[in-house]
Amino acid sequence: MADAHRHWSTPAAMAIPEGGYFELERGRYGPVFPRTPACYGFSIIAKVKDGREDAIREHGKTIEAAVAESPEFLAPLRLHYLRWLLFDVGSGLHFQYQGIFDTDFDKYTEDAVQLFGQSGISTVFTNLEDFPEDWRENPEAFVKFVREHHFPSFLEYGEYPYVTAEEIKKALRLKDAFSAMLDQMQ
Score class of each variant (00 low, 15 high):
Ala2Arg: 11
Ala4Phe: 11
Ala4Pro: 09
His5Met: 10
His7Ile: 13
Trp8Leu: 13
Ser9Ile: 15
Thr10Tyr: 14
Ala13His: 01
Ala15Pro: 00
Ala15Ile: 09
Ile16His: 06
Pro17Lys: 11
Pro17Trp: 06
Glu18Gln: 10
Gly20Lys: 03
Glu25Thr: 12
Glu25Val: 15
Glu25Lys: 13
Arg26Pro: 05
Gly27Ser: 10
Gly30Glu: 01
Pro31Glu: 07
Pro31Thr: 05
Pro31Phe: 02
Val32His: 06
Thr36Ser: 14
Cys39Ile: 07
Phe42Tyr: 08
Asp50Tyr: 06
Asp50Arg: 06
Gly51Met: 07
Asp54Asn: 08
Asp54Cys: 07
Ile56Asn: 01
Arg57Ser: 13
Glu58Tyr: 15
Glu58Asn: 15
His59Leu: 14
Ala65Ser: 09
Val67Ala: 07
Pro71Met: 09
Glu72Val: 03
Leu74Pro: 02
Ala75Ile: 11
Ala75Pro: 07
Arg78Met: 11
Arg78Thr: 12
Arg78His: 15
Leu79Met: 09
Leu79Ile: 14
Leu79Ser: 04
Leu79Trp: 08
Leu79Arg: 10
His80Arg: 04
Trp84Val: 01
Trp84Gly: 02
Leu85Cys: 01
Leu85His: 01
Val89Tyr: 11
Val89Glu: 08
Gly90Tyr: 09
Ser91Gly: 11
Leu93Arg: 05
Gln96Leu: 10
Gln98Asn: 09
Gly99Leu: 03
Phe101Gln: 00
Phe101Met: 06
Phe105Cys: 10
Asp106Cys: 10
Asp106Met: 09
Tyr108Lys: 12
Glu110Lys: 12
Val113Asn: 02
Gln114Arg: 13
Phe116Asp: 07
Phe116Trp: 04
Ile121Asn: 12
Ile121Phe: 06
Val124Asp: 11
Thr126Ala: 08
Thr126Leu: 14
Leu128Gln: 05
Leu128Phe: 05
Trp135Asp: 08
Pro139Trp: 00
Phe142Ala: 14
Glu148Trp: 01
His149Leu: 12
His149Asp: 15
Leu155Val: 10
Glu159Leu: 12
Pro161Glu: 04
Thr164Ile: 01
Thr164Gln: 05
Ala165Trp: 13
Ala165Ser: 13
Ile168Phe: 09
Arg173Val: 04
Leu174Cys: 12
Leu174Arg: 11
Ala177Asn: 05
Phe178Pro: 03
Ser179Val: 12
Ala180Lys: 15
Ala180Met: 08
Met181Pro: 04
